[in-house]
């Protein structure tokens, strides 16, 4: 079993939910990311979603756009991000790391080389936001050859036939985008979310994660009530931004925030 499967199926067997915080690598500086990853694990993260900064983050709201801009000011590259994962792995061999980003930096590196170097660094999954299953064949094959899970999105707009097709391609877990919109928006309709997730579960036994728009303990608890994992992105990145001049304060603020989410998730599990 892969590290990602071990983690998620282990939690499920124990009746627990996975907290997956997202941060953009290199925001606000390259030296912040690895200590921040360790601090998030310490504060209860089961999996880490690490954003690869891109100049044109079409699916992201303003908070994560600004994070990408901060990371790109000092040139955080895909190669840098892989090096950060490698450094994280020196002290942590158990927490899965999922890269989330856009296709172009991967295109430039080359699929085969990216998959090989990501595996060597200790990456467990790759979510490429602008690569639906129809365009994913070559990259997904390279990733799977290296034991890395290609993670795919299901959206509120995906009709049942697409949900089925996406689930057939998905590895690791299925990532449900909780609403029509960009990352960090609000107005979640949890009744609709629960309904869609029941459709996803008809087509896969993989764990289901929910992301986009989960911003506090309440929304995390509601999401956890119907999913196996909860992704929190913009709300974490906002705390990085608020404390961007002081690494110590970033680590403290993000940790404190995650600690408010952990009990909410476990209540939902209970």
């Amino acid at each position: 079993m892969t590290r990602l499967q071990t983690c998620l199926t282990g939690l499920r067997a124990a009746g627990k939910k996975a907290l997956i915080p997202y941060v953009t690598a290199g925001d606000p500086g390259k030296e912040v990311t690895v200590p921040l990853m360790h601090a998030m694990v310490e504060a209860g993260a089961a999996v880490i979603e690490l954003g690869v900064p891109f100049s044109d983050p079409m699916a992201d709201g303003p908070v994560i756009q600004r994070a990408a801009e901060r990371a790109l000011v000092h040139g955080t590259s895909l190669r840098d991000v892989l090096a950060m994962v490698g450094e994280f792995r020196q002290k942590n061999q158990s927490t899965p790391v999922i890269l989330m980003g856009y296709l172009n930096p991967v295109e430039v590196m080359g699929y085969e080389r990216f998959a090989r170097e990501a595996a060597a660094a200790g990456v467990d999954g790759v979510l490429t936001v602008d690569m639906p299953p129809e365009e994913a064949g070559d990259l997904a094959a390279q990733l799977e050859r290296q034991g890395i899970a290609p993670v795919f999105l299901v959206a509120p707009t995906s009709p049942p036939a697409r949900v089925q097709a996406i689930c057939a391609h998905a590895r690791g877990f299925v990532y449900y985008v909780s609403m029509k919109g960009v990352t960090g928006a609000s107005h979640l309709d949890f009744a609709a979310v629960a309904q869609k997730i029941s459709i996803i579960r008809q087509h896969t036994d993989l764990p289901v994660g929910i992301g986009f728009g989960i911003k506090d303990a309440d929304s995390a608890a509601q999401a956890a009530a119907c999913a196996d994992a909860v992704v929190v992105g913009s709300a974490v990145v906002q705390r990085v931004e608020d404390n961007r001049d002081d690494t110590g304060r970033i680590l403290a603020a993000v940790s404190a925030f995650l600690r408010t989410l952990v009990p909410a998730l476990q209540r939902a599990a209970g």
Binding site: M131, P132, V154, T157, R162, V177
Partner: peptide, 19 residues
Amino acid sequence: RGHFGPYGGRFVAETLMEP
């Protein structure tokens, strides 16, 4: 699928695929 040789296609987030 909108391909001109290797170019074109639909490289968008899943939410936009059905639209």
